[in-house]
Design a protein around this nucleic acid. Sequence first.
DNA 1: CATGAATGAGTGTTCATTCAT
DNA 2: GATGAATGAACACTCATTCAT
Lengths: 216, 216, 216, 216
Amino acid sequence: MKGLISRRGKVSKPSPRRQEQKLHRQAEILNAGFEVFAAHGYEAARIDDVARQAGVAKGTIYLYFRDKEQLFRAVVRSLVQKRFDAIAGDFEGKAGELLRELLSRMYGQIVRSDKVCAIVRLLIAEGGRFPQLTEIYHREIIAPGMKAIRHVLTQGIASGEFHKTAAVEFPQLLAAPGVLAIVWKVLHGQRHRLDLDAYSQAHLEFLLDSLRKQTV
Amino acid sequence: MKGLISRRGKVSKPSPRRQEQKLHRQAEILNAGFEVFAAHGYEAARIDDVARQAGVAKGTIYLYFRDKEQLFRAVVRSLVQKRFDAIAGDFEGKAGELLRELLSRMYGQIVRSDKVCAIVRLLIAEGGRFPQLTEIYHREIIAPGMKAIRHVLTQGIASGEFHKTAAVEFPQLLAAPGVLAIVWKVLHGQRHRLDLDAYSQAHLEFLLDSLRKQTV
Amino acid sequence: MKGLISRRGKVSKPSPRRQEQKLHRQAEILNAGFEVFAAHGYEAARIDDVARQAGVAKGTIYLYFRDKEQLFRAVVRSLVQKRFDAIAGDFEGKAGELLRELLSRMYGQIVRSDKVCAIVRLLIAEGGRFPQLTEIYHREIIAPGMKAIRHVLTQGIASGEFHKTAAVEFPQLLAAPGVLAIVWKVLHGQRHRLDLDAYSQAHLEFLLDSLRKQTV
Amino acid sequence: MKGLISRRGKVSKPSPRRQEQKLHRQAEILNAGFEVFAAHGYEAARIDDVARQAGVAKGTIYLYFRDKEQLFRAVVRSLVQKRFDAIAGDFEGKAGELLRELLSRMYGQIVRSDKVCAIVRLLIAEGGRFPQLTEIYHREIIAPGMKAIRHVLTQGIASGEFHKTAAVEFPQLLAAPGVLAIVWKVLHGQRHRLDLDAYSQAHLEFLLDSLRKQTV
DNA sequence: CATGAATGAGTGTTCATTCAT
DNA sequence: GATGAATGAACACTCATTCAT
């Protein structure tokens, strides 16, 4: 009830205009927070920088988030929510085609995204401090992703296109080159750039070599 | 001879005893530094903690390293030097056996090592701040590792055991599941433990499925 | 108009009230800084002491001055600005009177001032580290002072009251006893106090003896 | 008695050789101390630098001086002892000649000496912290110097060469330009160099103008 | 609501002093 | 005696957090 009744006794109307502005401002702070946290990591990130980046005063941050830690959590959570919806789409057609489509999305929307790379770095760097965040990430992204891979595989096996494979147990084996590519980008950035087109193509071939039944 | 006789005629005795102790001290500080940096990352690491962990006074650290940054660099460099010598061993025998051996070492000595995982986390987390360090890592570890993989593949292809594969261009495809396992450990630690025995076994089967010529 | 309207449309109010307080704060810090630097010298001065003396928290100092050095520079500069305006006044009348007036001001406003003595000590002590500061002091105080002396002398010579003197070349000769008195105060403080009234009187007589034409 | 009997019960002979070396080393430390203290002041001086400059280990300093403060005191005292003996010589001849000689020595041996300037700076800078040191300086240097000046003046007056002057009461008036010259050197060092030859010449003329009886 | 000046606990670093060798 | 490695108290400076305006 707190806050619903103003000091003057009038019913406080959140004023949709205001409400909107508030959300907008919160979003701006979250964006700014992401940029700063991604650039420097949790400890090295300065609230001052977040505020400047967001175009608000330092104190304003504290109107929206209790402290630095809550800001960080909110930033990471906000990132999870938007991501990877695209992949959730269902696949139809031959298993080989599905696989191609899956990889295409994986590289196109995940590996290539600088934002995703930044998120991954952040999670790896700060995961120890904030295990719940990686938990969210696992639940929302990793598990569904593995489920999708497993789905394609079982479908391919059922249709006779693929032979039985240990990858059903460990869908990670299929996704691993994508993960490596992200880590590679994060670690070697500009200096040893991976040719992602060729790499993803090789990845697909490699998978099909492994999965397809001998067509003798 | 330089330095043996001081300007004042005093015999300068580096005193092998002292010298030894100094190296030992330095090693202790590096170890302590690794633990603290690995646990908290560069920024959040406290020199105080490193000192306590090493069993020396805070000031002592600065007798061995100019500042926190130099300590960190030294820590990371010291880790690179010791690692991964084992893998450099040469392989003889059938390509399939080589591959099995390679994976066995990869999982046994790298993926399973908590220390390696900590190093990887550290490099990913702080690589942006210290690009030279990841560069060293690339030169000393990644590049030789990729060369070893490529060697096994070309040998297998030459002997007719393996068919041609895009993995010769991108040896990363072979190693990727190992990298993923490390990242997995780093991210999900205890909570979603990967059964490494089964995983590595699946990895090997998956690779052989992909690489071996159809034996009809 | 710059800055009145912020990017977000918020009216930025420098708030004259705030502005004023800020200047007042700054002045307080400068005063405190002077006392502490004067008492201990640059190196031995503690920012903590300056803060306590100024009645603010340590961090506040750094809102107004980048670091200890900038604070010190600002302190010294602030001292130069206020000083010695009085002397700049123009003199009328007989040269002998002018001289008496000049000395009177010199002793009354400069030599007697504990603050001036402190400044001189500070400049002598720290001049090596901050040459620009003594440069300012030379430009703003010394050079004008010498000009004033020279003016009195040439006027006296022109009017036939004084004979030609080497002091026109070196006005320092006239001011020297004042400088000595300051150094004396700084060095011997309480212990061998100089009777400034008698001393300045002797100084005047000595000068007139030297400058006046023999009246046979 | 302490130290006279060695542990072995033999009478300990200080061994003149050793004794000598010890004094020599002490002297070297004092010299080094002076250079470092003169260059940086008491607080900013580093014992480390003194040791390096003296060519001994840091710990050795503490074999000769209890702590930094005692070292500083010893340095300053050692400087006083050697100085200004020359001036103590007695003067014979006409008062005007005596004065010329006095000034010649003052400028030649005091004002021109970089070492003296450094000492003066040191005394002014640190006198507040070490009043006893300036006291020594006053007793050993200033007072005798003033006595010498007074002597010349009274002799000149007695011989009828000089008329009565307030400078007998305040011999500082005679020496002041020398003090100013030192302060000038200390403050303006290279940037506004004083032509000491012309300056001292002007000083002499100025004094004689003031002191000599009208020779009409 | 928003601001940004103020706070002060906390950190990296220095350096006088000690002491085992 | 001489050394220089080790110590730890002390200090400049930072930055998350608060709060008067």
